[in-house]
């Protein structure tokens, strides 16, 4: 199982029946593929849709129906549409149960940087600042380190931030880390990974949970439709 799928499968276990969820681009978009059976989650797309359905079949794209990543999607029974203003009233008004976003950096207080790299990437924050400010629970889904092996979980963000003290949980290919008032608590490690190995690629000191667990993701045999 590749890293991205592993992370998405673990994040999927955080979903609860009846959750309204907004997913960022990248790894987060994989999450609905791995929802545990019996869990019904409604996906919100900030361009104005609740109940985002699977990607369309080739040739069945509707130009009036896209997700926030601007990809054509489909509607499902129970879907509804609304304006950008109402969409962000949902997000900023605290009506979204969980948001899953990627990150460039997260610090020990849960401050997140995920929208700009000065001189390199300045594409805009889109809805990210609204999501981190307004969502009830913010889950960060990312690879534990950057491509060059540098920690992405840092003492203090150096990149332009998206929100101050906003992340609740960090799920990576190596660990599940909870952001608490005391600091970062290591809750789970990937199979075969020691807490020391996680600490080595994490800048701030991790508190190891007394009931430290091993991440368990069971690959399914049933292929689910590609969502979002």
């Amino acid at each position: 199982m590749d890293k991205r799928e592993f992370i998405a499968r673990r994040v999927a276990q955080e979903m609860r029946d009846g959750y309204y969820v907004n997913l960022g681009i990248g790894i987060p978009t994989l999450v609905p593929n791995y929802l545990p059976p019996g869990i019904e989650v409604i996906l919100q797309s900030e361009n104005g849709m609740l109940g985002v359905g699977p990607y369309p079949y080739e040739g069945e794209e509707d130009p009036d129906l896209i997700n926030a990543g601007k990809e054509p999607v489909t509607e499902i029974a129970g879907s509804c549409y609304f304006s950008s203003a109402e969409s962000f009233a949902m997000i900023r008004g605290g009506h979204i149960d969980a948001s899953v976003l990627g990150a460039l950096e997260v610090d020990e207080k849960g401050t997140l940087a995920n929208w700009a790299v000065p001189g390199k990437m300045l594409k805009g924050m889109g809805g990210a600042m609204d999501l981190v400010a307004g969502t009830k629970r913010l889950i960060i889904a990312m690879e534990h380190t950057a491509k060059d092996g540098a920690p992405k979980i840092v003492k203090k963000c150096t990149l332009p931030v998206t929100g101050i003290e906003v992340a609740d949980l960090i799920v990576t290919d190596l660990a599940v880390i909870e952001v608490t008032r005391r600091g970062l608590v290591l809750r789970e490690v990937a199979p075969g990974v020691t807490p020391q190995a996680v600490q080595k690629v994490t800048e701030p000191t991790l508190e190891i949970a007394p009931d430290l667990k091993t991440i368990s993701v069971v690959p399914e045999t049933v292929e689910r439709p590609l969502f979002r």
């Binding site: 900030e46 304006s83 950008s84 203003a85 969409s87 962000f88 997000i91 900023r92 924050m125 889109g126 809805g127 990210a128 600042m129 609204d130 400010a133 307004g134």
Partner: peptide, 24 residues
């Protein structure tokens, strides 16, 4: 921020000159 952009126009349309938000 996208929601701030939408809300700035919603406010303008509703006669609200400015608003406070935690976003940003």
């Amino acid at each position: 921020p996208q929601g701030t952009l939408a809300e700035r126009m919603r406010a303008a349309g509703a006669g609200i000159p400015a608003f406070f938000t935690p976003t940003g």
